[in-house]
């Protein structure tokens, strides 16, 4: 518990928000969470600063009905703060955190792959030549799936290209 507390104390909210560059819903959620955290900390401080000892002898001398004071004193002495076992929740949070880190790593990998593809496409676009100078060999070098598709079609005896006639017309003579 003390570990969680120290971590919560150490957390630099401004840095978190600025470094993650979060926007929109996530940012507002985070700021509301921060507000809740601040509130809790403030209440905790307030409570800590309040005195906890009660001068029962004073009350006994002042009040006539000492029985009530005795009762209250007994009640006070028997009272113990309820200690909540948060270790389970903490472990859940830790598991959630590791899961989140894993997800983030995966997302990062995906984004990197996408970026690479986009860069490649950009390169292709930049190095593209006019339509009437492009050869079939260059196209199949850039896109090997065309050759694979043609081989598959030949093997399966599909000599007509679906959608070709609609696009480029039919040269059938008879």
């Amino acid at each position: 518990m003390s570990l969680a507390k120290s971590a919560a104390n150490k957390l630099d909210w401004a840095k978190v928000i600025s470094s993650l560059k979060l926007t929109g819903k996530t940012a507002t959620q985070l700021s509301s969470f921060k507000k809740r955290n601040d509130e809790a900390r403030r209440q905790l401080l307030e409570l800590q600063s309040q005195p906890t000892s009660v001068d029962f002898s004073h009350y006994r001398s002042v009040l006539k009905n000492t029985e009530v004071v005795d009762k209250i004193e007994q009640f006070y002495k028997s009272y113990k703060p309820v200690s909540v076992d948060v270790s389970k929740q903490l472990s859940t949070i830790e598991a959630f955190e590791s899961q989140a880190i894993e997800n983030a790593a995966e997302t990062e990998k995906l984004v990197a792959q996408e970026l690479k593809d986009l860069k490649e496409t950009l390169n292709n676009i930049e190095s593209a030549r006019p339509f009437d100078q492009l050869t079939v060999d260059e196209l199949t070098k850039a896109r090997p799936e065309i050759d694979a598709k043609v081989e598959e079609m030949v093997k399966k005896g599909r000599w007509d290209v679906p959608g070709y006639k609609e696009k480029f017309g039919d040269l059938t003579i008879m």
């Binding site: 009437d132 100078q133 050869t135 079939v136 060999d137 040269l171 059938t172 003579i173 008879m174």
Partner: peptide, 21 residues
């Protein structure tokens, strides 16, 4: 081997399409 065939190649394409049909 260009994407846009020559004028001579039209005959080949025409024969291909005709026989295919």
């Amino acid at each position: 081997n260009k994407i846009i065939g020559s004028k001579w190649f039209v005959s080949q394409e025409a024969i291909y399409d005709t026989i295919l049909n």
